[in-house]
């Protein structure tokens, strides 16, 4: 199948399909809409360890322990 179409044609089709899915996703009313939403969400969501937008350093920030910082500064930990 892939041999029948150029890369540009395939990219164009993929782009059109994604746009269609995005439109359905944003409508979010029917079963197909929700399916598209779920699919798109799955392929576009990055794992937290590589997603600076959802960086655990920020999401889970509770600060530091002052004694631990003291030990760190002294090179003890």
């Amino acid at each position: 199948m892939s041999g029948l179409f150029s890369k540009e044609t395939r990219d164009e089709w993929a782009a059109k399909a994604t746009m269609w899915m995005a439109a359905r996703s944003s409508r979010n009313t029917t079963f197909v809409d929700r399916l598209c939403r779920r699919l798109l969400n799955r392929v576009t969501t990055r794992p937290p360890e590589t997603d600076f937008m959802r960086d655990p350093l920020i999401d889970n920030d509770q600060g530091f322990d002052p004694d631990e910082l003291d030990r760190y500064q002294r090179g003890e930990s």
């Binding site: 960086d55 600060g63 910082l69």
Partner: peptide, 16 residues
């Protein structure tokens, strides 16, 4: 308005 560099600052400036 905050980023990872700001959050890590207490430890960064306590570096041995």
């Amino acid at each position: 308005n905050i980023c990872m560099k700001g959050i890590i600052a207490p430890k960064a400036y306590a570096h041995p």
